[in-house]
Amino acid sequence: MRPSGRGMLQVAVDETRRSSALNAPIKARVEALSFYYGSYLALKDLNMEIREKQVTALIGPSGCGKTTLLRCFNRMHDLTPGTRYEGQIMLLPEDMNLVERGVDPIEVRMRIGMVFQKPNPFPKSVFENVAYGLRIRGVRSHIRIEEEVEKALRASALWDEVKDRLSNSALSLSGGQQQRLCIARALATSPEMVLFDEPTSALDPIATARIEELITALREQVTVLIVTHNMQQAARVSDYTAFMYLGSLVEFDETSKIFTNPGQKATEDYITGRYG
C-alpha cells in the first residue's frame, strides 16, 4: 500500500529521558583545553559541554586521554610535577575556571567528587569514611554529621547493608560495598559533580549492576562524568558520550546516536571492535 505520509499520526515514543537530556542546562564548559605532561601534549584543544544532572561518558582506547581529561576536572594533576594546562574548564553558573592557578584545588574537590577504579576506603570505620569530608570541612555538630552520613549512605544504596555495623572497619566490606562506600564518601560533601574513573572494572557483574543503578539514580542530584572501558556500560548509563582518540575529541553526541549511528568512522570502528 502507499505510504500514508509523515505527520498524519505523531506517535510519542518514550523520549522523556532524551528530551530532558537535550534541554538540560550546561554545568561545565571545556574550552580549548590542552594539557601537557612535561613536553608531552596529552590533550589537544578540547571543546565540549557537560550538561547538568546528566551522565556523560568518556570512551576511547587506552592512552587516548580520557582519564587525563577526567582528572583535570578536580585538579588531580596538580601533584604531578611538570604538568601544565592551557585553555579552561568553566564551571557554571558562576563561570569558575577549574584549572586556573588561583583557584583552590581543595575548593574544587569539595564541589567535584571523584570515585576511582579500585575502591580505596580509608582504614577507618564505615561511619568515619563518610564523615571524613564533612569533618575536614569543619562540620562539628554530631547530629548534623550523623544525618549527612545516613543521607549519603542511603543515596549510595548502602545504608541497609551497613546500618548495623557503622563502626566496623570499612575494609571488612566486600569490593562492591567498598566502592559504594567511596561513592557515599564523595556524596557526603554534597558535590555538584561526581567523576567516576572506571568505577566497576574491579567488580563482579552483580556489584557492577548495583553501581550502574546507582549512577543512573545519581542523575537526580548531580552531574556525572564517567570514564569506562566497558562500551555497553557507557551505552547503558550515559546520556552523552564523548569518543576520544590520541588526545583529541573525535565525536561528542547523544549516547543513543553514538551507539546506533555514529557520525565518524573512527568512532564506528572503535565501538564495533574494528581496526581502523
Partner: peptide, 9 residues
C-alpha cells in the same frame, strides 16, 4: 557480541 552501530543495524 552486543553489536553496536552498523553491526547492530
Amino acid at each position: 557480541r552486543a553489536p553496536t552501530a552498523s553491526d547492530l543495524r
